[in-house]
Design a protein around this nucleic acid. Structure first.
Lengths: 202, 202
DNA sequence: CTCCATGGAATGAACCGTAATTCATCCATG
DNA sequence: CATGGATGAATTACGGTTCATTCCATGGAG
């Protein structure tokens, strides 16, 4: 299990991760062969087992490491927003933007990790909760500042927001002929969530 | 491939479908063994192949048939609603209620069908679109009647609504210790979507 | 400067468990 | 006894994982 090779081989682990993202996103975890990932990353089958315990570990590592970056990044970005509403806007924009910047990664996170709890007996996707927590923070702040309704149930609201973004992501990923642009859609989602569907307040 | 057996065995196909739902929902499609489904439905392994082409076909059939019922049922139920807003309420209530009535089924539809497009090369989940179309109909009606904003993008809105419900469903399914009650949550989702998060209209 | 020893990294062919599918056989019914 | 559904053990393919072998960079010795 090489830690970090001084010469040129230092990126081998990353090459494998990148290839895994590509392959998993294309064919799904269960239909992806380790040998394919090996081929795609230009290493031998056995080499993968020098860097990862097994195929499951490859998926988990991928999730943990990449999701960490995503979470750190979105925390950074939203911090620059003035109020809760602006932060929410940034959060949503960022999420939809990821679709273009990291299409394969998002696809894996979206589809494969979801059902991971089914086959990865004990694994809890902590990083995913970190991501949701950022959203909770924004919503709490908005309540505190009177921007959002006082009776907002943050536990439900964070899921509503995430679910909306997530579903649009899926639509984007699955529709071959791109019907819409992520950033434009982000605007629509934001408006819908902040103002609601109704013409008038009841 | 027996169409419909006159004697007692007529329910064999259904027994298999029911068992498949239970097994798939518990362990996921790829980790479910055909022999498990056979055992759970009280038939021999080979018998399954008298009723279904293969394991994939079992999943697809399950989806098509059960989803048809769900769609027909929700069309029926929403039809009784007075206006678009009430129909939307019914739709959301119904969706969350399915979680209790058909927990296993929803879990399969939610998690397994999602990634089906990855491994079922040509299959398009038509019934899923039928379900979304019911939602579109409600939103269109609301726009026509001035209940919903005129500039609502129905294509995006239907996904926002579905995504919100869907994400809460997932939360419900995955959290062992039930933190919330589906029908109460349904109310929160409805309010959030119709009125939005904000305290004031901008 | 050349040669060789050393050890860790990389290789990939072979192993092996698993599970989808088949099919020779059995059995109930009319 | 003929028909056709049902059975489940055997077949077979597949692909994750292993590990004996090879490769290569380094550095010490001659």
């Amino acid at each position: 299990m090489p830690k970090r090779v001084s010469s040129q081989g230092g990126d081998k682990r990353n090459r494998i991760l990148r290839a895994a993202i590509a392959v998993f996103s294309r064919k799904g975890f269960f239909n992806s062969k380790v040998s394919e990932i090996a081929r795609a990353s230009g290493v031998a089958d056995g080499t993968i087992y020098l860097y990862f315990k097994n195929k499951d570990d490859l998926l988990i590592s991928l999730f943990e490491e990449k999701m960490s970056e995503v979470v750190a990044d979105v925390i950074q970005r939203t911090a620059s927003g003035g109020g809760a509403l602006e932060k929410l806007k940034i959060f949503i924009d960022n999420h939809m933007d990821l679709l273009e910047r990291e299409a394969g990664l998002i696809e894996v996170l979206q589809v494969e990790i979801r059902q991971s709890s089914k086959f990865l007996k004990d694994y809890a996707p902590v990083k995913f909760f970190d991501y949701l927590d950022v959203l909770s923070g924004i919503l709490e702040e908005g309540k505190r500042d009177g921007v959002f309704r006082q009776d907002l149930n943050v536990g439900v609201a964070r899921r509503v927001v995430f679910g909306a973004m997530d579903e649009l992501s899926r639509t984007y990923i699955l529709s071959k002929k791109q019907k819409f642009h992520p950033s434009i859609t982000a605007g629509e989602i934001f408006r819908m969530l902040s103002e609601g569907l109704c013409a008038q307040r009841a």
